[in-house]
Design a protein around this nucleic acid. Structure first.
Length: 228
DNA sequence: GCGACAG
DNA sequence: ATCTTGTCGC
């Protein structure tokens, strides 16, 4: 897959902000995105206790069977500090390395974190989508920017409420299981919010999180612990 | 000014 | 993110 990978990653907060400002205009918020994707990739990164050692995992599954098609991993050092809003720079280097090792070209990327639901509208999912050119969506376990009305969110699977930040709908609180805390979905790149939510719901038929996220999470932890 | 803040 | 046992419920 032809990616627009930079030759170096920013190391300072100012440089990182500049990169986001430069790339944010490249985000495609409309799509249409994949209508009936078969190859969907889940990405996640695991961290060690004291060290800066990190492990990234990408798991491509068949959207119809939810079975694994291919897996790729990469380990490295999280040099960039964790700064809300610049979180992507901590995971991008190792995630991109893992993506490079993939033979399969995913039709959709499901990221662990926000897409447009970000203070500058350029969360991890947007960044990965722009760099790879592959449609992407963010699925976060907690909100970052944006609020929603809990009373407007039905308790049944499939129910949703808009996530609004500064008068703008930036994502959606989406219930993937009856009565269970929702996940927060936002467009990353190459698709609109409805399409992103439709895919997330289809990939999470039984658990709160999409199968892609669950598998990538488990794999990244295993790799970090050296369980080959 | 102060606190909160994806993972 | 990570440190952590049991426990309530389907």
């Amino acid at each position: 897959m032809r990616m627009h990978i930079p030759h170096s990653w920013p190391r300072t907060e100012a440089d990182a902000l500049a990169v986001q400002d430069q790339l944010r205009g490249l985000v495609d918020r409309v799509g249409p995105g994949p209508q009936d994707p078969r190859l969907v990739a889940g990405l996640d990164v695991a961290y060690a206790d004291g060290t800066s050692r990190v492990a990234a995992a990408v798991v491509v599954i068949d959207a119809r069977t939810l079975e694994t098609v291919e897996r790729a991993t990469a380990v490295g050092d999280a040099t960039f500090p964790y700064i809300p809003g610049l979180f992507a720079f901590r995971e991008l280097p190792v995630l991109v390395e893992a993506l490079t090792r993939l033979d399969t070209v995913p039709e959709l990327l499901l990221c662990d974190g926000q897409g447009l639901a970000h203070p500058r509208r350029f969360g991890l999912a947007c960044h990965l989508g722009v760099l790879t050119g592959i449609p992407a969506a963010g699925v976060a376990k907690t909100t970052f920017v944006g609020t929603y009305d809990p009373a407007a969110l039905g308790r049944e699977r499939g129910a949703y409420a808009p996530l609004v930040d500064r008068e703008e709908t930036v994502g959606r609180a989406l219930r993937t299981r009856d009565g269970v805390k929702p996940v927060y979905v936002s467009t990353g790149h190459g698709m609109d919010l409805d399409t992103a939510c439709r895919h997330v719901l289809a990939l999470a038929p039984k658990y709160r999180l999409p199968q892609t996220t669950r598998l990538a999470d488990r794999l990244s932890r295993d790799v970090l612990r050296g369980a080959h």
